[in-house]
């Protein structure tokens, strides 16, 4: 079943065209890789899908609803949550509180309830906390629950970023270079985690430069260059594709 469909999408900033007539779709339950040389428009695409930018042209449909004009908090409510290339956390909050803020979206909350600390608010708050703890356990961060987010090691900060996103209960999780700056052990852990998240029924759209990771876990890969799709297929097909080789000029692409 089709979850996300991008059709004829363009994004221009002044004279610069970052995305140019791009079209592809993502099926429910798959891990889709999004690759391309630096500056190909991958992160811009995430920003457009999540609602940071309004597309100049074209449509984005999610579960049959047009989301092109929605702001980030609305797309998050629709079930699209993303992480950031540079680690973005609530740095001065505890790890638990970070995830609890993520849980906010799917909890029972009202201004007046919060102000008067009603029974309903209290029980919803407890529910939030246990959900947050469950997510942290799932992400393997239990040991850090009370630590300040800023004090976590780099790899675990990335995992916390994903934990916050998971707390918002996404149907489509967009990961922007989750393995950047990680050593091979940490990368293996992250790959494992991404697979586990998919097994929970979450569809994943993944930008990643590490070809081992992309080739290893993606069901399908979309390659973009200069804001347009130049190839799409299974990892095996992409590896053989001439255009892709050209775009990458044979760089780190020969890796298995």
């Amino acid at each position: 079943m089709q979850l996300l469909a991008i059709d004829d999408l363009s994004m221009r900033f002044g004279g610069l065209t970052a995305i140019n007539d791009l079209g592809f779709s993502v099926d429910q339950g798959e891990i889709r890789g999004l690759i391309g040389p630096n500056g190909a428009g991958k992160t811009t695409l995430f920003n457009v899908i999540s609602g940071v930018y309004k597309p100049s042209k074209g449509s984005i449909t999610f579960k049959g609803t047009e989301i092109g004009t929605m702001k980030p908090h609305r797309t998050a409510r629709m079930g699209i949550v993303r992480t950031f290339q540079s680690i973005t956390l609530f740095k001065n909050f505890s790890v638990l509180k970070n995830v609890m803020i993520g849980c906010h979206l799917n909890s029972n909350y009202s201004y007046w309830g919060a102000l008067f600390n009603t029974a309903k608010t209290r029980s919803s708050e407890q529910e939030n906390e246990s959900r947050a703890r469950e997510i942290l356990e799932f992400m393997g961060l239990t040991q850090y629950v009370d630590d300040l987010a800023a004090n976590l090691p780099h790899g675990h900060q990335r995992a916390l970023g994903i934990a916050i996103a998971m707390a918002a209960e996404p149907e489509l999780l967009m990961l922007d270079e989750p393995c950047t700056g990680m050593n091979p052990d940490e990368t293996a852990e992250m790959v494992n985690l991404i697979n586990k998240i998919r097994d929970r029924g979450v569809t994943i759209l993944l930008i990643e430069h590490d070809m081992k990771v992309v080739m290893g876990i993606c069901d399908k890969i979309t390659v973009i260059n200069f804001g347009t799709k130049i190839a799409e297929g299974t990892p095996a097909e992409i590896r053989k594709d001439e255009l892709v080789h050209e775009a990458y000029l044979g760089s780190d692409f020969d890796a298995p």
Partner: peptide, 12 residues
Amino acid sequence: ESEILAQHVGIN
């Protein structure tokens, strides 16, 4: 702490 992150987890 982070306006952009707050937005992306669904806070208006």
